[in-house]
Structure formats: C-alpha cells, structure tokens
Design a binder for these strands. Structure first.
Lengths: 212, 212, 212, 212
DNA sequence: TATGAATGAGTTTTCATTCAT
DNA sequence: GATGAATGAAAACTCATTCAT
C-alpha cells in the first residue's frame, strides 16, 4: 500500500466509522454520562455501559478517551456552527444576525440541558492538551462572529474603528458568562428571554449617557 | 482572662497559621508548580519541594490538597479585590471606576504571569466541589462590579434600565475572555494596553451607528 | 425469562466470582502472606504477587482489602463449621460429639499451620469493624457448640441446670486458649493429642474430689 | 562510669521516672484514649493532649510508643496480680482461692470499664512483637493460677492426674472468653454475678452424669 | 467485529520520632 | 525538664488500555 492510498484508506475508514450507528451511540452516551456524573467520574466503562457496548468496542471507534471527549465537543459544536450559520444567513443586517445568533446559542443550550452542563461546566475541567484541541474546534464558531462583525463594519452599520478581536471576545465572553451563570443557577430562569437584553448590551454597552 | 479577650485570643490563634512565613511560602510554591506543571501534575510532593519544606509540613498549614488550592485562589483573589477596591475608590465617576478596574485587573495578571496561567487556565480544571468554593470567593469580586454599576445608575451616569446582573456578566465575561485569550496566545501582546478599548466596548458596545 | 429463572440467574452471577479459580487462588495467597509476614505487613501487592496476579485483579474479585481478609476468615471458618457438623452428626452422645469436635478443631489447625497462625494470632490484630464481621462468622461455630449442649441436656446426659452460654464460653475459651498457646509455642508439641484431656476437663472440670 | 554503676543509674532513673507524677498521668491518659478511640486511633499526640503534656514529653518517660502500651498493660496487670494474690492468700482451699480469683478478676473489669475495653479488645490488635511482650507480663498472672492448682493437687483437693498446663488454659480461657463476650455485649449484664457459675464449670465441668 | 478479564502505574495523607529552643 | 514544629516513609485503590477468544 503506498502512502496516498493509506491516507485515502484512513480517511475512508474514519468517515465510515463516524457514520456507523455505534459511533453516534457512544457520543450520545458520553454526553449523558458526563452530565450525570461529572467529567472526572465519566469512566470509559460507564460510557460503554450507557452505550450498550463493551469497553473494548469504544477503542474500535475512537483512538483513546481524549478522542471520545474531543469528538463529543466537535460533533456538538459542529451542530452549533451549522445552526448559527443557517439562521444568520437569512438576516440582512449585522444587528439582526447578532440577535438571532444569541437567541439560537441560548436556545440550543436551553433545549439540551445535558449539553449545557457538559459544555459550560464539565468539559472545562479537562487538561491543557484537551482544552487546546477544544479551542481549535471553538475557532470555527469565533470565525462566524468575526464574519458578522466584518460584515457590519463593511456596510457601515458598525463603527469603523471597532477592534474585531476585542469585540468578538466581548460577544463570546458575554454569551458564555451568561450561559454559565444560568447553568450554575440550575436553569432557574429563561435563558432565551435574556437574548434581547444581551444583544442590546453588546450593541450599545452600558450606555454611558454623557456620550449620547 | 475575660470573655472578650478570650475571643480575641482565639481569633488570633485561628489566623496565626496564615501569618507564619511558611504559609505564604507554600502558597507561592503552589502557584509556581501549578503554572509550570499544570493543575493535574501539581502533586503535593512537588509543591513541598518547591517551597523547601517536607511533604508533611504542608499538612500543618492546610487540611488537605484541596485546601491548598482554595487558599491559593482565596489569597490571590483577595489581593485582586483589595486592589480594585482601592483604585476605584479614588475615582469620581462610574466610567473612571470601570476603567481603572479593567486596567488593574489586566495589570495584576500581566505582572504575575504565573498567576495569570493559574487563574485563567489551570484552576478551571478543578472538580465541581473545588470550583464551587472558588465561585464563592469570586462573588466578592462580582459584587465590586455590581457596586460600581449601581453607583453609575444612581448618579444618572448609566442607563436607568440597565440590567445589573447582565451588565456585570458582560463586564466580567469580556475581561475574562480577553485575559484567557491573551494567556492562550502566550502573552504575545500587551494586555494592559487593551484596557481602554475594552472599557469603550463595555460602555458603548459595538456602537451601532443607526442608534446614535 | 420468568421471575424465578431471573432470580436463579442473579444468584448464579452473585456467586460466580467465588467459584472462579482466581478467587480461591487469592484467598490461599492471603493466608500464606499473612502467616509469613503478619497481619500488618500483608500488603495487597504482596498478596497479588503470591497469587500470581496483578494488584488490580484482586479488586475484580474483592471490594477492598477488608473484604479479602473477611473472605479468608469466612471461607476457612466455613470449612471448620462444615467439618465439625459432619463429624458430630455421626456420634450418638453429647460426650462423643464434644470429643470429635475438639479433635477435629485441633486437627484442622495442626494440618494447616499457616491457617493456625492466621486465625489464632494474626486476624485478631484487625480493627474493630473487621473483628465485628469476623464475630458474625464465628457465631455459626458457637451455635454448633450450643446445639451439642442442648442435645446433651435434653437426653439427660448433661446437668439440667447447665448454663448453655457459660458452658459454651468455657468450651470455646478452653479450645481457643489451648490452640493459641500451642501456636505461641511454635507447634512444639502434638495439639491433637491434647484433645482427650481437654475433653475431660470440659466434662469433669478440675474434679474437685470432695464433690464426688 | 563503669558498667555496674551505669546499670544502677539506669535502674534508678527508671525507678524514679515511674514514680514521678507525669508517668502515671500518661499511663492513665493512654487507657482513656485507647478506650475512647480504639487502638489504631490512639496516636501519641492524642495521649499527650489527654495527659496535658507536650508530645515530646512522652519520650522523656517512655522509649517509644510500644513502651507506652506495654507499660499500660504492665501497670494494670500488676494491679491485677497483686489484688488476686492478696485475696487468694486469705483462703484455705484451692476451691475458695479459685472462686475469689474469678470474682476479683471480673470485679476489676466491671469497676473500670475503660480498662475492660482496653485489655479485652483493643490491646489485642497490637502487632506480634507487642503481643509477645504482653504475653510475658501475662505469665505472672498465669503463674498465680498454676500455684493455686499445685496447691490443690498437693493438699489432695484436686485430681492427682490433673494436667496443670491444660487446666490453667481452661481456667484462663474460660474467664477471658466470658469477659470478652461481656464487653462485646456492651456490659449489658452483671459480670461478677457470673463468677459462681464459672467457678462451678471450672471445678466440675459440664457434669457428665454417667461419670458420677 | 465484538468482547471483557486482566493489567499496573501513580499519589495523598498520617503519625511516630527528633531536636533546637 | 519541657516544648511542639518539622520530618519523610509507606500503601490502598482506580481506571485507561490491551488482547486472546
């Protein structure tokens, strides 16, 4: 087997594995186990039992435990990015795009509270190496925000001197902190209902009156 | 000894350990070890060696390993809160208070890069129990922000309809995300220099032009 | 599967570990290690090495170290009770039953000197919790003695006013003290040969002459 | 200093130490701490605190922890032997001597329930080396029993063919087992009241009727 | 493919003892 | 004599991963 066909073969195998039923079965089991037991109590044996497979079977679909956890994040975050891309594409202004982004970000977490616990609390307990890989996945999301901001600047909607990176950090930081606080408060209030006010804060800040 | 002096005496005993030189020595050693090795590789034996004491000595000053880690956070965050309180007290407007808060938040992290790594990355890998305790310490800081926002609303500087909790989440989320990104970028740029722009973002948001 | 077969199946699962070869292998290794090194020097790693398995394997068969030690006692004492029940059943009088009981008690210890050291000396160094559980196992043995005494009283062989509990304490206390002294004397003499005299002491005491 | 005067000096020091108030203070503290916390939880620091001295002070009076524990046993058992010797000396027959011995053995334990717990349960958890030394102290007591039995044989009161060693094992084993059972039953009944029946069992055994 | 029994490395914490004051 | 702060050795248990079936 030459190098190229090896790569093709790997790619094929990888692709095939991700579409086989047990792959998704294990991913979903991992989300449940992590949400119910916490990151540090999510042993491979528990995930296997939840997925209804043997421990060893997990190693037919994933390289190791870290690979399972990254895959959980990749699959779920992929869904996030896809959804956000979809809903923002349908809007004409940056302001509208940002609003539906915030709304949908909050809605996805509200609708899958296991996912909310896993992304906002549990996966952050992972070690530096894992979190580095998680950050790479996150970049795709951050780029979606960047695109909206550039779009807003280009059409004159947003300030020409807006620092894209800092603005993106404010937007993501605010959404993330808001979501985390909501999870820590055990989902006691309606997260989606906060979207308009968060949107306003992002667009106008704390509205220093003298500046108007 | 009357009752009052007895209580005073007890209070003194309670705090005497925290004032003995080895207490601070161990705290500082823990910061270095965690920053250099990562949270999960910060064994008690490494901290003891770094502090120049025997393993057992740590247990004369701390109940257990978790107590060491919480104390690291409590001591350092206490310093944060004290410093921020000091510098904001000297300012007359909420806008000025927020600016010096952001500047000093960033400055403390810039001046102790070990501390920056520990608070922005490593301590977040702790388990739920430890993070719960860390959150309690964090509350003090969040209250400082709340006080500034209330002050700004009361003197008419900030919008009367400003949602304090959300605004605080935006402010803390933005500073935190900005600091974390800076640490992940290995301190490649000047964090303190970003303070004015972060301040502007917080006060005026992304400055949607149509709103002006 | 109906309810009954489910229960049978569960029962089987429950006991299946005890019947697998490694279970007995570990029990026997524990007896050897405790006898040769003493209770406090019987580390799990030594027992594993003696049994020819990995440390972790012990935890597939036993909940923890205490479980290993209790199981050693349960398995060995079970053998005791079964043997004593067997040999006493074949005898017609209480006197004969007591004699074969004493003989077999001493014989079992004589034939497995590791077991003798473990039961007479080492397991008594265990902590209160473990000794409480050991006592529960011991109760079965004490009940065998009680049955013989009741049998003897009912057929008129033994004094009608005999206090069963005290008599049982005398019998067990005497056998136990005799066996312990023999172990402390490093098995220098023939323990089984003492059985007739112990039997006589139990039946007639020190034979105060004036009482005849 | 020559060898002899060194020995004399040591002897003197030893003697002097045993009579100094802190020596007894530490012994009594050890009994309390062992009874209340159990053998394995009786740390030197707890004994020191109970005795009202510093940890280091214990090492001025005792060689090491084992020495403290042996001394506890020696002092208390010495009291036992002295008392038993006293009360048996006043009796004319072996039967009477045995009765008062049993009565006083049980009485001493009844009157100091801490001591009962320590001698019947806790000190038996000690390791082989310590128990070997405890056995040496015990020998004095066993010799008292032997003397009574020899006395009884010599004056024709007891059977001429009585095996002294076995009889002593029966007597001590019976008393010990009875006392231990009583402690395990949490002193629910009157131990001293059992003395006459224990005495009877020892003298006449289970009274096999056919033998009369 | 799938299984699951077996492996074995790695770390916190306790506490008897010492010794400078 | 008395103190008590400091020492440092020692062991149970977990769980990701493998591999014979």
């Amino acid at each position: 087997m030459n190098e190229q066909s090896f790569i093709l073969w790997c790619g094929k195998v990888k692709h095939v594995k991700r579409n086989r039923p047990k792959y998704k079965q294990i991913i979903e089991a991992a989300v449940v186990v992590i949400a119910e037991n916490g990151y540090h109590q999510a042993q491979i044996s528990k995930i296997a039992r939840q997925a209804g497979v043997a421990d060893g079977t997990i190693y037919l679909y994933f390289k190791n435990k870290e690979d399972v956890l990254i895959s959980v994040f990749r699959e779920k975050m992929g869904m996030f990015v896809q959804k956000i891309n979809e809903v923002t594409a349908g809007k004409k202004t940056a302001a509208e795009k940002l609003l539906v982004m915030i709304q949908n970000h909050f809605r996805i977490l509200s609708e899958d509270q296991y996912l909310a616990i896993v992304t906002q609390l549990e996966l952050r307990q992972s070690n530096k190496a894992l979190r580095f890989k998680i950050n790479e996945v996150l970049k795709e999301y951050l780029e979606v925000i960047d695109h909206i901001l550039v779009f807003g600047k280009e059409n004159g909607e947003l300030a020409a001197d807006l620092d894209i990176r800092l603005a993106r950090q404010m937007i993501f930081g605010t959404m993330d902190e808001t979501a985390t606080t909501w999870v820590l408060n055990e989902h006691k209030y309606d997260l989606v209902a906060l979207a308009p006010k968060v949107h306003e804060l992002i667009l106008y800040g704390c509205k220093l009156k003298s500046s108007v």
